[in-house]
Design a protein around this nucleic acid. Structure first.
Lengths: 237, 237
DNA sequence: ACAGCGACTGACTGATGGGTCAGTCAGTGC
DNA sequence: GCACTGACTGACCCATCAGTCAGTCGCTGT
């Protein structure tokens, strides 16, 4: 095959790009190194001149995204316009992901299925984000900007919602505009969407016992009816 | 090896349980059929007396969960106490997942990395759920129970938040009680958590406009801060 | 006692795909 | 035109497993 000689840097970029696209399309596991090479128009041996092994490309791709993310998020200064800063951060995160939909899909849907070390790396990253968000929310509670309640729980919910939206938005079929995402997500965090106007906490005995235990192993007794935790003060107007 | 002879049904269950645990621990791809057999105390050949191939167990596990889920969710009757029904559904879903934390982790974190057919099956399931939830939310909007706005977007957000919470709750380290999850999730859907006190937003100017437009394209006016609709849903004992 | 059944076994095989390396060849300097 | 470099190639090697099957063994009914 008559592959053009190109700059080393360029070849490396080409392989990275090819790997990203192939991984996004077939998933990391199903993507063969040969597929990546084919996409880059290069023989297999060449791949190993640039990357130590199969995992190395993925690692480099993901690390790059992490770095961009970390750079994009700004620490909120309580002295300034907080809502604007929050929105800025949401916007920055959305932008980083949607600037590279293929990579987004790799990270958000195909990340698993690799060796434990890599899975752990990704999990750790999310954990850090979750914790930081939790801290930020606690700060916000101090400032009266965030509703009282379990800040870590809020962080988890937010992270999950964000992941899902970004994953959906990164799929070719959904051309949701990023500014739309930012606005709607912000609105959601601000006021949810249920409008029940129900105040006091209800129901001490959930109608739950119905759930049949289809499962195999012995499981701890179903739902012990817990006393409702102090409802997250819904402070409606 | 002197494996006891047991009832066929029982052996099958044992293999299912073993597979579930091994998959949850190592991920589907890294789990070898031999690992499953070892966990079940059985030789590899035996596995193939009960399941056609490696995927078959996973499929059966996941199908089972889907069935349990479908059975648990009740169609909301607008004539009855809607909030209670919504809460019941949330509770039912949470219960199905948390009754089987290992399976939850398989579905929510290790599902990818398999062959396209299976990934598609899972994706389709979520898509159905998402769509149903979207429809339900649109119904709710008709009843004034759900805020106006993009119901599909709400559905995606909700699904993502739910997945994340369940995944976290299914990890051994976090003994979050399920009734706590139900309550807090419900509260979140009801009123979010940001409290920027930009209250009586004149419908025309969404609170978002304040933020500097750092991003790319202009956007149609996002979600208007809707005046809360007259509470249709009556009391709750 | 013994034949028959069928659950169970585990050594084996075949395919797959990550990783290697001896060899090719275009360019470059002299 | 010749020696040299180093980017590139792809046939090959080999570890890993999913899946098979000929054979074992214990139970059951007669």
């Amino acid at each position: 095959m008559a592959t053009e000689r190109v700059d080393k840097k360029e070849r490396r970029q080409e392989l990275l790009r090819a790997a990203r696209d192939v991984f996004a399309r077939k998933g990391y596991h199903d993507a063969k190194v040969e597929d990546v090479c084919a996409a880059a128009g290069v023989a297999k041996g060449t791949y190993y001149l640039y990357f130590k092994d199969k995992r190395a490309v993925l690692e480099e791709l993901v690390d790059g995204l992490f770095v961009r993310l970390a750079a994009a998020i700004l620490r909120v200064d309580p002295g300034l316009d907080v809502p604007a800063q929050v929105q800025h951060n949401i916007r920055a995160i959305v932008a980083v992901f949607l600037d590279d939909p293929a990579l987004t899909r790799i990270l958000l849907s195909y990340a698993a299925g690799l060796d434990p070390a890599f899975v752990k790396k990704v999990a750790d990253f999310y954990e850090v984000v979750r914790r930081q968000l939790g801290d930020a929310l606690r700060d916000g509670q101090g400032l009266g900007i965030v509703a009282p309640g379990d800040a870590d729980f809020y962080a988890t919910l937010t992270l999950g919602a964000l992941k899902e939206v970004l994953l959906e938005a990164s799929s070719d079929a959904k051309p949701r505009h990023r500014e739309e995402i930012v606005g709607k997500l912000f609105a959601f965090l601000e006021s949810g969407y249920l409008r029940f106007a129900l105040e006091a906490a209800p129901v001490s005995t959930p109608p739950l016992a119905t759930a049949k235990r289809g499962s195999s192993t012995p499981q701890p007794p179903a739902v012990a009816a817990t006393p409702r935790p102090p409802a997250v003060a819904p402070r409606k107007r």
